[in-house]
Simulated scan of single mutants.
Amino acid sequence: MLVVAAILALVAAAIHVYIFVLESVWWTTPRGRAVFGTTEAQAVETRQLAFNQGFYNLFLAVIAAAGAVALFLDQSAVGATLVIAGCGSMTLAGVVLLSSDRTKTRPALIQLAAPLLSLVALAGSAL
């Protein structure tokens, strides 16, 4: 189950790297605006907020990926700790998005599914 947890943590990390790119690199582009449903004016106005938020997603991805690598290297305590920190934060951020705006159910589930499943697999490996 540790391998499954590590693979799912890497999937979660990849999703969050993509979110980083959307928010910090492509925010004002037609593609970024289409994903988030913003106008050009809204995107320009909120660019700095999105840039900062994107980096939060990147840092969570790095934490989860480092945990997955540690799990693959048989460093279970360090790996589990990092996966819990990274994937736990990703999951909770998805729950906040879901609970704050029901129209964002799909993006919230994309954001929280892989990290939640990673945590479930990690918990299952401890049983």
Rank of each mutant, 00 (worst) to 15 (best):
V44Q: 13
S100E: 11
A70Y: 05
G37C: 02
V78Q: 14
A61H: 04
G54R: 01
I110E: 11
T29A: 04
A64E: 03
R47W: 02
Q42K: 03
Q75S: 14
H16C: 10
A85M: 12
A121W: 02
L49R: 14
Q48V: 03
A5M: 15
G124V: 10
L60Q: 07
Q42S: 01
Q75M: 14
V95N: 06
C87V: 05
L8F: 08
T28P: 08
W27D: 03
R102H: 10
M90Q: 09
L22M: 14
T38V: 12
L2D: 13
V78D: 12
F51V: 00
A41F: 00
A70M: 10
L97P: 01
Q111P: 02
A77I: 13
A108V: 06
T29H: 02
A34Q: 05
S24A: 15
L82S: 09
A43E: 04
K104I: 05
Y18T: 08
L82R: 08
I7A: 06
A114R: 05
L73F: 11
V83N: 01
A126E: 10
V120Q: 08
M90T: 09
A70I: 01
S118Y: 11
L116V: 04
T28Y: 01
A61E: 01
V21Y: 06
S99M: 15
S76R: 14
L127N: 09
S118M: 14
A34V: 06
T28H: 10
A64K: 01
E40M: 05
E40L: 05
L10K: 09
Q53S: 04
V35M: 08
Y18N: 11
M1R: 04
V62D: 04
S89P: 03
T103E: 10
Q75W: 11
V4H: 04
A77K: 05
L2W: 07
S100W: 04
N57F: 13
A126S: 12
A123V: 05
V21F: 04
L127Y: 11
V83A: 07
M90F: 04
A43R: 00
Y18Q: 12
